[in-house]
Design a protein around this nucleic acid. Structure first.
Lengths: 147, 147
DNA sequence: CTCACTGCAAATCCTTTGCAGCTGC
DNA sequence: GCAGCTGCAAAGGATTTGCAGTGAG
């Protein structure tokens, strides 16, 4: 692992060289299409659907097919560069923030925001079997801004 | 499998009359197909996928098409009789337990269990805007039973 | 008889697979 | 020249839509 911070420092992630390094660090070959997708995902610090990524990427000068967008996003998730966030049955988003955190969905605006990890009283859960260990905690807080 | 009496409390939800009343209470016309689907959802296991419901229902004597299963489950959710639980991007389940609770997914066995509502430090969330109120909290705890 | 509602076949949309082309050795 | 990897067209599967059938008034 390099000492160049690859998750918090946007300066070098916005250069192609930085992105190439990021891909390399995660054992992903930096091809043209993958760089274009990475550029899209890590430039806008956002939650994007596969389809949004497709549109965004193809605004640029590198054509990427729908299938490649899906396969690449999936690959990035497997390699720990992205996190897949299932908001509801209609929406699966990809989150460039892989640190431990949760999400707020405003059901009126559709906006999604990050929230800090919540301290759950998890160890006290009697529903957890003794041999079971927690792998991840997926939490979506649905809020309304209607009065 | 025998289904004459349910081991615990013989509520009237297990009779067709009870189911019809339940549907009626939620402004849903108790048609043959809807009753068959309700019977399946409220008598059998708690968490079922749309496809499982299709299979279960068609073991009985009322044929119901795939589309009707989907439409009916969606209707039940809209009318507050069922809750839709998105486990991950591959799995959407319908839960006949509509009380406030969360879910544990054992990633090794695929088993899903209910857990009691967790006391979240939600009021303290600074990420919540003043005018926003919490609609629901969707929490899936992913656990592994590997040692 | 008419109208509104119901249920389903077909269409649609999202995602994955299988393979042709390319790259480096 | 060959082996393995990439990217995409086409296939596959889940969900929704539009309309024919049905029953109540």
């Amino acid at each position: 692992m390099k000492d160049g911070d690859d998750s918090g420092n946007p300066t070098d992630e916005n250069t192609d060289a930085g992105l190439a390094r990021l891909l390399h660090d995660h054992q992903v070959n930096p091809t043209r299409q993958r760089l274009a997708i990475a550029r899209c995902m890590f430039k806008h610090r956002q939650h994007l659907s596969a389809d949004s990524v497709l549109v965004q990427v193809n605004l640029g000068d590198t054509y990427v097919s729908k299938a490649t967008v899906y396969n690449t996003l999936k690959l990035f998730v497997e390699q720990g560069m992205l996190r897949e966030v299932v908001i509801d049955s209609q929406r699966t988003l990809f989150d460039s923030n892989i640190s431990d955190h949760h999400h707020i969905l405003n059901v009126d605006t559709g906006e999604i925001r990050d929230i800090d990890p919540i301290q759950l009283a998890v160890p006290k859960l009697r529903e957890l079997a003794p041999e079971e260990s927690i792998t991840s905690v997926d939490l979506v807080l649905r809020v309304s801004s209607k009065t």
